[in-house]
Measured scan of single mutants.
Amino acid sequence: NKASVVANQLIPINTALTLIMMKAEVVTPMGIPAEEIPKLVGMQVNRAVPLGTTLMPDMVKNYE
């Protein structure tokens, strides 16, 4: 099973992601793959992301 990106803390709306906000975890359903973490740094979330939430592509602005 591949790990996904999971919020390590509450991430407020429009916050630019940093490494300490994210962790890799095997979850179902899968979200953004953990190997994308370096690419996510500096990208903004378009909603508040609660602690423990799996990051999905539609939660990150301009994620492709």
Rank of each mutant, 00 (worst) to 15 (best):
residue 42 G to C: 13
residue 48 A to F: 06
residue 25 E to A: 08
residue 49 V to Q: 02
residue 60 V to W: 04
residue 46 N to Y: 14
residue 10 L to P: 10
residue 43 M to I: 04
residue 46 N to V: 11
residue 52 G to M: 07
residue 46 N to D: 09
residue 36 E to W: 13
residue 29 P to R: 03
residue 49 V to E: 01
residue 22 M to L: 10
residue 23 K to R: 15
residue 47 R to A: 06
residue 44 Q to P: 13
residue 12 P to S: 08
residue 31 G to I: 02
residue 1 N to K: 08
residue 7 A to Y: 01
residue 42 G to R: 14
residue 56 M to T: 11
residue 23 K to S: 06
residue 31 G to E: 02
residue 64 E to D: 12
residue 30 M to I: 09
residue 22 M to P: 00
residue 27 V to M: 08
residue 55 L to V: 08
residue 36 E to M: 04
residue 20 I to R: 15
residue 46 N to I: 07
residue 34 A to G: 14
residue 35 E to F: 04
residue 5 V to Y: 01
residue 18 T to Q: 03
residue 35 E to N: 05
residue 55 L to C: 02
residue 53 T to C: 09
residue 6 V to I: 13
residue 22 M to H: 00
residue 22 M to G: 01
residue 15 T to D: 04
residue 54 T to E: 02
residue 33 P to Q: 04
residue 60 V to M: 06
residue 1 N to L: 14
residue 60 V to T: 02
residue 59 M to L: 05
residue 18 T to V: 04
residue 13 I to G: 12
residue 60 V to R: 01
residue 51 L to E: 06
residue 33 P to H: 06
residue 36 E to F: 08
residue 5 V to S: 05
residue 48 A to Y: 07
residue 19 L to M: 07
residue 58 D to W: 14
residue 28 T to N: 12
residue 10 L to H: 13
residue 47 R to K: 06
residue 44 Q to G: 03
residue 13 I to T: 09
residue 62 N to E: 10
residue 56 M to R: 06
residue 36 E to L: 07
residue 48 A to L: 13
residue 49 V to F: 02
residue 34 A to R: 05
residue 46 N to C: 15
residue 26 V to A: 13
residue 34 A to D: 12
residue 59 M to A: 08
residue 16 A to F: 10
residue 31 G to F: 02
residue 5 V to E: 00
residue 15 T to N: 06
residue 42 G to I: 01
residue 8 N to V: 08
residue 9 Q to L: 10
residue 51 L to Y: 13
residue 31 G to Q: 03
residue 28 T to A: 13
residue 27 V to I: 04
residue 61 K to L: 09
residue 38 P to V: 04
residue 8 N to A: 10
residue 32 I to D: 00
residue 1 N to Q: 13
residue 39 K to L: 06
residue 62 N to G: 14
residue 22 M to V: 10
residue 16 A to M: 09
residue 53 T to G: 11
residue 26 V to C: 15
residue 64 E to N: 09
residue 6 V to N: 03
residue 60 V to S: 00
residue 38 P to T: 13
residue 58 D to F: 15
residue 37 I to Y: 02
residue 11 I to V: 14
residue 49 V to H: 02
residue 33 P to M: 06
residue 57 P to E: 08
residue 41 V to W: 14
residue 41 V to G: 03
residue 37 I to T: 04
residue 8 N to S: 09
residue 23 K to L: 07
residue 11 I to E: 00
residue 60 V to Q: 01
residue 29 P to K: 13
residue 57 P to N: 06
residue 55 L to G: 00
residue 54 T to M: 06
residue 33 P to N: 07
residue 62 N to T: 08
residue 50 P to M: 12
residue 24 A to S: 08
residue 12 P to C: 15
residue 56 M to N: 10
residue 10 L to E: 10
residue 45 V to H: 00
residue 19 L to V: 03
residue 34 A to N: 05
residue 2 K to A: 15
residue 62 N to D: 04
residue 24 A to G: 11
residue 16 A to H: 05
residue 33 P to V: 11
residue 21 M to G: 03
residue 63 Y to I: 02
residue 31 G to M: 06
residue 6 V to K: 07
residue 22 M to D: 00
residue 49 V to M: 05
residue 46 N to A: 09
residue 42 G to T: 07
residue 10 L to F: 09
residue 59 M to D: 05
residue 45 V to I: 04
residue 53 T to M: 15
residue 17 L to S: 00
residue 34 A to M: 10
residue 13 I to H: 05
residue 20 I to Q: 14
residue 59 M to I: 10
residue 44 Q to K: 09
residue 62 N to L: 11
residue 10 L to S: 06
residue 21 M to A: 03
residue 30 M to P: 06
residue 29 P to G: 12
residue 62 N to W: 04
residue 59 M to Y: 08
residue 30 M to S: 06
residue 47 R to C: 04
residue 17 L to I: 04
residue 38 P to M: 03
residue 23 K to D: 03
residue 18 T to A: 07
residue 11 I to N: 00
residue 61 K to P: 07
residue 19 L to Q: 12
residue 18 T to D: 02
residue 34 A to F: 15
residue 6 V to R: 10
residue 41 V to T: 08
residue 31 G to S: 04
residue 53 T to S: 14
residue 40 L to T: 02
residue 29 P to S: 08
residue 43 M to Y: 09
residue 4 S to W: 02
residue 23 K to H: 07
residue 6 V to C: 11
residue 17 L to F: 07
residue 41 V to S: 08
residue 11 I to G: 00
residue 42 G to S: 14
residue 57 P to M: 15
residue 61 K to I: 06
residue 3 A to W: 03
residue 24 A to P: 05
residue 10 L to Q: 09
residue 58 D to M: 13
residue 42 G to A: 11
residue 33 P to G: 12
residue 38 P to K: 12
residue 5 V to A: 15
residue 25 E to S: 12
residue 58 D to G: 08
residue 13 I to L: 11
residue 25 E to M: 12
residue 45 V to S: 05
residue 56 M to G: 04
residue 19 L to R: 05
residue 63 Y to Q: 03
residue 26 V to P: 07
residue 48 A to K: 10
residue 44 Q to D: 06
residue 63 Y to V: 03
residue 22 M to C: 08
residue 26 V to I: 04
residue 57 P to V: 10
residue 1 N to R: 02
residue 40 L to Y: 03
residue 8 N to M: 15
residue 35 E to T: 07
residue 12 P to R: 11
residue 50 P to N: 09
residue 51 L to D: 09
residue 13 I to F: 11
residue 10 L to D: 11
residue 54 T to W: 02
residue 56 M to A: 08
residue 10 L to N: 06
residue 61 K to Y: 12
residue 56 M to C: 13
residue 39 K to E: 03
residue 34 A to I: 07
residue 28 T to W: 04
residue 29 P to H: 12
residue 32 I to N: 00
residue 28 T to M: 10
residue 18 T to C: 08
residue 47 R to N: 15
residue 11 I to A: 01
residue 51 L to F: 14
residue 55 L to K: 01
residue 8 N to K: 11
residue 40 L to H: 01
residue 22 M to W: 01
residue 45 V to A: 04
residue 20 I to H: 10
residue 14 N to E: 08
residue 30 M to N: 06
